[in-house]
């Protein structure tokens, strides 16, 4: 009962601030509302008995990613008008994609296919969720984990390479 009340509080705030992210006038405000949304998601993770995920959510998304976001936004100082100039008709593809995604999500929720309660773990084991996650991640799911880390590494190297290439072009000019 209490849990449901809290769930509705968190999710309503999350949805409202998520809408504010796209409707806010300045980019910094948007980032601020996005922080609130991510915090609410972390709170919902706690309701789902996963304090580890909640802490990681706050630590990585709110603590690191959003600081970088704000840093970039403040340095670039992109107003709404300038941002429009960077959009090259992506919305034509984006709108159908979002609609399809929503329909798929709604279908899955209504069908209840994601209703895997506790994933086969007893409540007591889930209380020590960090241990459970660690053992699963480095045991059964080691291969996907390594693949993901490799993909991230490639993205990282790619970003550095792009910056270096840009610099060489500057030198040639």
């Amino acid at each position: 009962m209490m849990e449901q009340v809290f769930f509705y509080i968190f999710s309503i705030i999350a949805v409202i601030s998520a809408i504010s992210v796209i409707s806010a006038r300045s980019a910094v405000r948007s980032a601020f509302y996005l922080i609130i949304t991510l915090m609410q998601v972390a709170a919902i993770f706690i309701l789902l008995r996963s304090p580890f995920l909640a802490a990681v959510q706050v630590f990585i998304y709110v603590g690191a990613v959003m600081v970088l976001f704000l840093f970039a936004v403040m340095v670039l100082d992109i107003g709404r008008e300038k941002l429009v100039a960077y959009m090259h008709h992506q919305s034509v593809i984006a709108v159908p994609a979002v609609i399809v995604f929503f329909i798929m999500g709604a279908y899955m929720i209504i069908r209840g296919g994601w209703n895997v309660s506790n994933a086969g773990f007893p409540e007591a084991a889930l209380a020590k969720s960090s241990e459970v996650i660690g053992k699963e991640m480095f045991g059964r799911y080691l291969f996907p984990f390594e693949v993901v880390s490799l993909v991230l590494l490639i993205a990282l190297i790619g970003a550095v390479a792009l910056v270096l290439r840009g610099r060489e072009k500057d030198k040639q000019c």
Binding site: I35, V58, F59, V62, M66, V67, L70
Partner: peptide, 8 residues
Amino acid sequence: AIGGLSIY
């Protein structure tokens, strides 16, 4: 995680 939020 929480300590890092002060920066905002």
